[in-house]
């Protein structure tokens, strides 16, 4: 009886221990798909600007004399438009605003697009929206970027064939040396 109890106690202890060890290395399938990803990620300081307008004489009349400025301006970082096309199909159209509570931080781009493995024609266009507020006049500082854009709009656009292997992530980012958007693969 005592021996049987000891054997049972040992078996239970071993089973519990093995159970804990097995659960600590549980294989979990995350995806059964071979889909690859096109990842877009870069950071841009953004173009600082002001939206100005001329208040009407009635509006100026309502203000104290010392506050009657002929131009009322609001500082802002210019929003940017991101457009991504894959194989001639537009997959992303988005307006990106500067980060931060006051929208005065850089603009961060991060998108992931699932694509089947193979060759894909990828067209990315990222441009400042220069349109100002109604009745406003564009003004302010020149663009100040992490790596200052060249001013050449082609630096913020690519249009090329990207080859994606199974479950590969290709990164579209801003290359500081080339001063242009570029596609990076795992190999380098």
């Amino acid at each position: 009886m005592m021996r049987a109890r000891r054997v049972a106690a040992t078996v239970v202890a071993v089973l519990l221990t093995t159970g804990v060890a097995a659960l600590s290395r549980l294989p979990v399938t995350l995806t059964r798909s071979d889909e690859a990803r096109l990842r877009l990620s870069w950071r841009l300081q953004g173009r600082a600007g002001e939206d100005c307008r001329r208040p009407s004489p009635e509006e100026l009349e309502r203000l104290p004399v010392h506050m009657r400025n002929p131009a009322a301006c609001i500082g802002r970082i210019t929003p940017y438009r991101l457009e991504v096309g894959v194989d001639g199909r537009t997959v992303v159209v988005d307006t990106l605003h500067a980060a931060g509570a006051r929208a005065d931080r850089p603009i961060y781009v991060f998108r992931e697009i699932r694509l089947p493995p193979g060759d894909h024609r990828v067209a990315v266009r990222f441009r400042a929206l220069t349109g100002a507020l109604p009745g406003a006049e564009a003004g302010g500082d020149p663009p100040a970027a992490e790596d200052p854009p060249t001013g050449d709009s082609s630096a913020w656009a690519i249009d090329e064939v990207v080859r994606l292997r199974e479950r590969e992530i290709a990164l579209v980012t801003y290359d500081r040396e080339r001063r242009a958007l570029t596609v990076r693969h795992g190999g380098g």
Binding site: V28, L30, R37, R167, E168, I169
Partner: peptide, 13 residues
């Protein structure tokens, strides 16, 4: 960083 893992060993605890 450039590949999507198909499976992973997770610690259930």
């Amino acid at each position: 960083l450039f590949s999507v893992p198909r499976s992973v060993s997770v610690d259930a605890f």
